[in-house]
């Protein structure tokens, strides 16, 4: 079994990079109650890839050879839109806007792919293809994730303050809109790159479930980050190790393990409170 897993170790390394980067950002996603923003950005990113494939099918040259560029542009545009309030000024509730973006992006991706590539492309966008991650892919993921994580270490105070109490941050001279957009920018960037390998479902999992596990087990911000990263890493390793020898899809296997970890954390939280 170990030999089989080691055969795909490059893919495992890539999955771990995605797990760590998404779980760190996921702490803000969960605490700020914007979990479906993560899903909508991932879906927008997949629509970007679908558009690239569609244009490629039409024989349009140039950028269509780089679906990543489309994924990044779509994800960042979505992140900026949601970061600026997502239609609140027009009187539409934020969660409704997120729902609209998610549904329209998902449908658009399916429609474009139906005319662009084989039917399996849609499954890859939804479920990802973790096993297909190569060393070069992992290096690309690292090149995006490491600077983002460094930014989050350096500007932890600022991201925390504008997330926790934006009014007071504003009175102390913080440019709340800027910091908010910066946070969403990092979120969009990581999602756009992670989505191409992990798919919408697994990225959404890493953004939400590890942070929820952290919230259940930890009593401090550093504790939440630590538990979130650890549980995402453990879920990635165990889920991956189960899926390969038993010929199961890796993404759902990792999600299942994440879910089990969160379920195990639940009674521990109840016991903590007694």
């Amino acid at each position: 079994m170990l030999e089989t897993v080691l055969l795909f170790r490059e893919a495992l390394y890539g999955a771990l990079v995605i797990a760590i980067a998404c779980s760190v950002l996921g702490v803000y996603v969960v605490l700020r109650r914007i979990v479906f923003v993560g899903a909508a950005i991932a879906q927008l990113s997949s629509a970007g890839i679908a558009l690239a494939l569609f244009l490629g099918g039409l024989g349009v040259s140039g950028l269509t050879a780089h679906p990543t560029a489309f994924a990044v542009v779509f994800a960042l545009a979505g992140a900026m839109f949601f970061g600026l309030g997502g239609g609140q000024r027009a009187g539409v509730p934020p969660d409704a806007t997120i729902g609209v973006a998610y549904a329209v992006a998902a449908a658009t991706a399916i429609l474009l792919l139906a005319k662009a590539a084989g039917g399996e492309a849609h499954d890859i966008l939804l479920q990802g293809n973790i096993l297909g991650i190569t060393r070069a892919d992992t290096l690309v993921l690292l090149a995006v994730s490491l600077p983002v994580l460094l930014v989050h270490v350096l500007f932890y105070k600022e991201f925390l303050f504008v997330s926790f109490d934006r009014e007071t941050a504003r009175t102390l001279g913080y440019r709340v809109v800027f910091w908010n957009l910066f946070l969403y920018f990092t979120l969009g960037l990581v999602i756009a790159f992670a989505m191409q390998f992990a798919g919408v479902m697994l990225v959404f999992n890493f953004l939400v479930i590890p942070a929820v596990t952290g919230l259940l087990l930890a009593r401090s911000m550093s504790g939440i980050f630590t538990v979130a990263v650890l549980s995402a890493t453990v879920a990635a390793v165990i889920g991956f190790s189960i899926s390969v020898p038993f010929d199961l899809p890796s993404g759902p296997a990792i999600i299942a393990v994440s879910g089990v970890l969160a379920l195990l954390a639940w009674p521990m939280r109840v016991l903590q409170r007694r």
Partner: peptide
């Protein structure tokens, strides 16, 4: 109610925010 009490922050950590701009 404009403060989000869902954040697991200690009281002293919240008070420290009042010095963030000076830090």
């Amino acid at each position: 109610d404009s403060v989000d009490y869902n954040f697991p922050l200690k009281v002293v950590d919240v008070v420290l925010m009042g010095r963030y701009d000076r830090i």
